[in-house]
Design a protein around this nucleic acid. Structure first.
Lengths: 200, 200
DNA sequence: ATAATTATGGACTTACCGTTCCAGAAAGAT
DNA sequence: ATCTTTCTGGAACGGTAAGTCCATAATTAT
């Protein structure tokens, strides 16, 4: 009955995620987005409402991809190894500077804290979900509930800090060394309190 | 011979620091700045060149204030207590949400990483200076040189992470608990390797 | 008092922002 | 093949951004 949409919506959103991730919300103009997504202004507004609406969608896509990454590792490895791989994959994976954009959620919190509280809160919620996943992994690794909560909060702080360093193009070995330091602290703390779990 | 400047330059810069710190570089318009600093466009351009020039000046002012904070604590307290007080002062001090802007250097790195590499690098340099101060404190506390370097890098990561949490209006007790966790790890690590320094 | 010099306020310029709108192209249903 | 519906490209809009410029006000030196 009617003419069908010509572009692949999911693919267009992927492109937008990449741009927003790299340059942030404010510095990404609609023109940049249209060029990258390969569609015209009218199609854009028909499909996504407005720039902010697209950003919300991108935030959600990024968050679920991010959570899936950790969840998959959790299904396949021992809990502490899964946690470690989440950190190492995010930071050590490649030396291509074009992939060191930190974490879109962290970037959003910082950029928009005083500008758009709704977007900042949404990003914060997603981060909280990841922190809950951390906590679950730590529980699996044998940490007591309160210890798991405390260590998860600590690891989220480490994650956020590592994402900041990531944007400064810190060398990968240095980055991995920091993560290793942090995990060494957490693991020895869990092992000390609960020697039965020397094997994590 | 000539008419003197009517405004207090230092005071005007302070106001600008506050604004940039809170809202970031891009979201702070020249109009915002002029209103807060209480001067006209012509005076502004005569005194500071342009918006970017003022931002550089603000970054330097913020960084030196920040370093002075840690340096003063270092002069007055045992080294680990000085480090702790730096972290606690920056996060626990007040519950006024209007003062939880994180760290202007961290904010700048995140906001401008892909936008203005010069400004990002300048902020990164200032952060590195703070990290060197961390390292010096840890050395004073009895850490071996390589251990001090490693722990300083770790603490900078914690600092950056805490600044991110700060912008999410995380509760002060939670924030202090995280910092306490991190310092507990570092202190027990130093004490274990070098039991002579049980007193830090 | 007057001349010389410099700061100041505000209008102006240029460029880009996000968004709206409309004419026309493309596709399915009959 | 035609009609209807929906999508598409691009022009246009109002608003705001940073930066420039000039007439005027204010100050000091003579």
């Amino acid at each position: 009955m009617s003419r069908p949409v010509e572009f692949d919506r999911d693919q267009a959103v992927q492109k937008a995620v990449h741009l927003f991730w790299q340059r942030g919300y404010q510095a990404t103009s609609l023109t940049d987005l249209l060029d990258a997504m390969g569609l015209s202004r009218s199609s854009f507004y028909a499909a996504f409402g407005d720039k902010r609406g697209l950003f919300v969608e991108c935030l959600n896509v990024f968050a679920s991809r991010n959570q899936a990454l950790l969840q998959r590792a959790r299904d396949r490895k021992p809990p502490m190894a899964a946690l470690r791989s989440y950190f190492e994959r995010n930071f050590g994976q490649t030396s291509d500077p074009d992939l060191h954009f930190g974490c879109m959620l962290v970037n959003t919190v910082i950029e928009l804290a005083a500008i758009d509280q709704g977007l900042c809160d949404l990003a914060g919620q997603h981060l909280k979900t990841v922190q809950d996943l951390f906590e679950a992994c730590l529980g699996d690794a044998g940490a007591e509930p309160d210890e798991a909560k405390q260590a998860a909060a600590f690891l989220m702080m480490v994650n956020e800090g590592a994402r900041v360093s990531d944007r400064q193009r810190i060398s990968i070995p240095d980055q991995l060394a920091r993560i290793n330091t942090a995990f060494g602290y957490v693991e020895s703390s869990i092992a000390n309190r609960n020697p039965a779990n020397a094997q994590l």
